[in-house]
Design a protein around this nucleic acid. Structure first.
Lengths: 218, 218
DNA sequence: TAGATTGTTAATCGATTAACAATC
DNA sequence: TAGATTGTTAATCGATTAACAATC
């Protein structure tokens, strides 16, 4: 068991990656307010986690703070960017240009230079061969070609539930390695493809349940 | 520590509630295919979890299966509904009728009779005093009155990041007990208000990271 | 019956929290 | 310096997994 331990790139749990993304958002926000340094408990308060968690997470990526000054926010933002972003950037494609798909295109348009949605796909002819929120929309049968040409690594699924699995397969077959799935259906894909579900119905039902019962103390 | 243990309604972790919501979706889907009973491993496969987890979760809500037949899907769906839904139903309000807000209104329109979005709010005059995707849109200064009149228990926040905290406060002050937050900002609210974050940017960055690094084996 | 599945407890695993010496 | 904060390890906590007798 010792011989196959990972040496070069440590494995970081998904939970931690999510928090790092939030710390980056917080660092940008604080800098926007003119703040240049922040203590772990200040970052923690803005991120909604504990100070100890912030320190441990930042230790993971090798970001260091000063015991008297805290963390230098511009350095921190750089460190987080180097960890979270691909050096050469990554490109994403969206499948399903309905109401939700369009909203997501608008939401991400120009937000992250290192991670842009560069193509969208749909089965409906009246949604394709045009530009929506700055993103070119192609018919589904061009997916494979466009994904390869544009070197697209990430897929976003916003099709109806019944169409989700075929859409995911098409993306995976074309070479996509990660999928953000908004459709209320569990996707079955090779283990080499990382899937994250954004199930709005589930989330809303959970909120409704705890609105009634009260939040557990965890 | 023994004296204040909960007796009547057991506390169920958020993770479990989320899975129960998924089992309900699976039960509905299988019934739509004409299936009447399913084993835990069949439900598990469709839900993307382990069979042992399905059995343990269903045990939590007192749903029983037969060792030879598995679970009766119509009974299961009823049990899950009785557990997840408020007997008299619950009403939700959405704040922020932009692209994402409209998409969510369309997404939930008529989907769950026991949990409907019955009001929307916005600061923009040209978005208010009209009906969008079947939902009446009010100006923000009517929020308190409408939330109380319609007995709204759940809020959905789809405003820009800078407007999220005031919107959350307005909802909490009006009596909302749970909030589904799509804005990329951590909300600070009394502990009595349950908050769930749907951070699309974080989720996409996480997918992009694991698309590059490979999924951890967890 | 035989056998796969269920309900339920014990063992394992991983993440969070607590603690504390080192630091500026 | 004094003192709050940092980096880092040990203890705790909770959830998942493994195991197995009971069931139809």
């Amino acid at each position: 068991m010792n011989e196959n331990r990972q040496t070069a790139n440590l494995t970081v749990p998904a939970r931690v990656i999510g928090r790092l993304s939030i710390y980056r958002r917080v660092a940008a926000m604080l800098q926007g307010e003119g703040v240049t340094t922040a203590y772990s408990h200040e970052i923690a308060a803005a991120a909604g986690v504990t100070a100890a968690q912030v320190r441990r997470d930042l230790m993971t990526i090798g970001a260091q703070g000063s015991p008297t000054q805290g963390y230098q926010l511009d350095e921190l933002e750089t460190s987080l960017g180097e960890f979270l972003d691909a050096p050469a950037g990554q490109r994403a494609a969206l499948v399903g240009v309905g109401n939700l798909g369009r909203a997501i295109l608008a939401h991400f348009a120009g937000r992250r230079p290192k991670l842009g949605i560069v193509a969208a796909f749909d089965v409906e002819p009246d949604r394709t061969n045009r530009v929506i929120h700055g993103c070119r929309c192609y018919p589904m049968d061009e997916l494979r070609e466009v994904v390869r040409r544009e070197d697209i690594a990430v897929g976003i699924i916003t099709v109806p539930a019944a169409a989700a699995q075929p859409a995911a397969m098409a993306l995976a077959d074309a070479g996509v390695r990660g999928i953000l799935n908004f459709a209320p259906r569990t996707l079955h894909l090779p283990a080499s493809v990382h899937v994250e579900d954004m199930d709005m119905t589930m989330a809303l039902e959970r909120v409704a349940y705890f609105a009634r019962q009260g939040t557990p103390r965890s």
